[in-house]
C-alpha cells in the first residue's frame, strides 16, 4: 500500500474490490496488504512492465514483496450473456450478477480449484476474470470446454495474446 501511494497510484478502499487506473491497469485488492495489478487483456503489457520495474527499483523499505503471480497464476476471462450460466456450473459460490457486482471480486473455488473471480464486464457484456494455479491450467481448460459445451450457448475459445 505504501509503495502504491508513493507511486501516486490509487488502490481500492475495501478488500475484495477493484478499480481501474487511468492508464488502463486494473488494481485488485486481495487483502489488507495484498494487491494484484493486471494489464488490459490483449494489450502489450508495456505499462505494467514499467510499473513492475519501478517497484523493483524502489528503495522504499516497506514496499512489500512480489508473489510472482504472473508466473504462478493462469488467467481466463468468461464473458457474454451466458457467462453467469457457465459460472453456475463451475462454481458453488454465489456469483450471480446481482451478488457479485462489477468492480468486486470473490476469493473462492471454481473449476475444482482455489480461484480469484473478479467481475469486470469486459467486451461489453457480463464477464468474469478467473485467476488460479498455472499448473492446473490444462485441467481447468478441460473442465471449461466440456462444461461450456454442455450449456449449448455456443461459447468460443480465444486467447488473450499480447499484441506483439
Amino acid at each position: 500500500m505504501d509503495w502504491l501511494g508513493e507511486a501516486g497510484l490509487s488502490a481500492p478502499e475495501s478488500v475484495n474490490t477493484t478499480l481501474d487506473l487511468p492508464c488502463g491497469t486494473s488494481v485488485l485488492r486481495l487483502g489488507q496488504q495484498e494487491v494484484l495489478l493486471t494489464a488490459p487483456p490483449g494489450g502489450s503489457g508495456a505499462r505494467l512492465r514499467e510499473l513492475r520495474n519501478a517497484w523493483h527499483d524502489s528503495e522504499l523499505p516497506a514496499k512489500g514483496y512480489e508473489a510472482y503471480r504472473d508466473e504462478g497464476w493462469a488467467w481466463f476471462v468468461i464473458s457474454g450473456p451466458a457467462a453467469p450460466a457457465l459460472m453456475r456450473r463451475i462454481s458453488m459460490a454465489d456469483l450471480r450478477p446481482e451478488s457479485l457486482k462489477p468492480a468486486h471480486l470473490a476469493q473462492t473455488r471454481a473449476l475444482h480449484l482455489d480461484a480469484v473471480v473478479a467481475r469486470f464486464d469486459r467486451f461489453g457484456a457480463v464477464s468474469y476474470d478467473i485467476f488460479f494455479d498455472i499448473a492446473s491450467a490444462g485441467f481447468a481448460l478441460d473442465v471449461l470446454t466440456e462444461t461450456a459445451a454442455g450449456t449449448n450457448a455456443d461459447f468460443q475459445m480465444a486467447a488473450l495474446h499480447p499484441a506483439e
Binding site: H112, L113, D133, A135, S136, G138, F139, D142, V143, E146, T147, G150
Partner: peptide, 13 residues
C-alpha cells in the same frame, strides 16, 4: 457428475 479428475502439469510436461 462429470468425472473431472484434477491434474497438474509442470512446464516441461
Amino acid at each position: 457428475g462429470p468425472n473431472h479428475v484434477p491434474y497438474r502439469h509442470t512446464a516441461m510436461h
